[in-house]
Design a protein around this nucleic acid. Sequence first.
DNA 1: TTAGATTTGGAACTGGAGTTCCACTTCCGC
DNA 2: GCGGAAGTGGAACTCCAGTTCCAAATCTAA
Lengths: 188, 188
Amino acid sequence: MTHVGERADARANRDRVVRAARAVFAERGAGAEIREIAERAGVGMGTVYRNFANRDDLMAAIVGECVDEANALMQRAEEATSPLEGLQLLLQGGWDMAEMHGDLLDMLKQHTSHEDRSSEMHERMARLFTRAAEAGVVRRDVPIPFLTALLMGLFTTYQQLRHELGDETARRASTDAFFRVALVDPVA
Amino acid sequence: MTHVGERADARANRDRVVRAARAVFAERGAGAEIREIAERAGVGMGTVYRNFANRDDLMAAIVGECVDEANALMQRAEEATSPLEGLQLLLQGGWDMAEMHGDLLDMLKQHTSHEDRSSEMHERMARLFTRAAEAGVVRRDVPIPFLTALLMGLFTTYQQLRHELGDETARRASTDAFFRVALVDPVA
DNA sequence: TTAGATTTGGAACTGGAGTTCCACTTCCGC
DNA sequence: GCGGAAGTGGAACTCCAGTTCCAAATCTAA
């Protein structure tokens, strides 16, 4: 991916733009201004536009990273030693990402690009639930699409509540809620 | 509330603007354009701005109506014959409102005005859950703020899923989910 | 060191959405 | 009906965030 003949300083500047964009989008949401991103990166507008065709392109790059991270999480969950452990991994990673990425979650919902990688994420999640259902861990009488939607919703809910209840309590409540809905035997 | 000396046609026009605003905000979300609202109402921009100081004022009026409707629902739920029936009323009314009002739900979350009436709504909901908990219907070991946040989240989830699963299935799944999390004895 | 390509900063440009304004129209008490 | 107050339409204006542009600064291969 590294262009040949790319200047070292140019590469460094692109990284600063990307980092700034991550931070600003996370805290300001989809409405963040390019000027603020450039400012935060310590760079002029020209530098932003040298690396990204337009605002939407920049957003897509940042959201895309996030989707990739989610897919990697899904991968780890699939490779877990048991279906239940896979689910626990998924939830834990989800709370982590929710804390880390702030408003990026809402951006992901709105942004219609990335239909490929984003729907890949949903498919992976659905597959995870399906397998867990086949293993008798997850209820068979709840629609899989509902489970994926519920979990996405819980990630958002968690983001809002962790400030009010504290991270630990919010995680416990959210995890408990999901397992009560999804699991055949919600003991843990 | 009717101004003395208010012309009949002016009153009618304001109603048309309000109706159009409800519809357009519901289907386009917070980003809806005033021009489209005026057009839909069959009215010029001047008429919109005669009745509402600015875009934000118009949004506040529409969102405010919605909050009032929600408060009325809460009122009915409080007056129900039993705590459980109160919850059932609340959920049913919630699904209805979600179907009716589209993107207004998201607008409500963002709009920081109406802190008074909006927080009144949250307080009422919390009171409803607290009473149900005292009656032994709702679990005591789940934080009330989590229940209110979960329910709000489920309303959003319902909106997204009803297109994919159909209204009936989506309602059943959502209701079932909330009761599994909230109720001491989730039988129904 | 230097030439020449690459990259940069940020002022200026652009387009689109909110808002204003006022000549014109419509209402309604008399 | 009439007169004047109330209300209207929509063109024009304002504002602001995205985008462009290019002289100046910076880098790097020779």
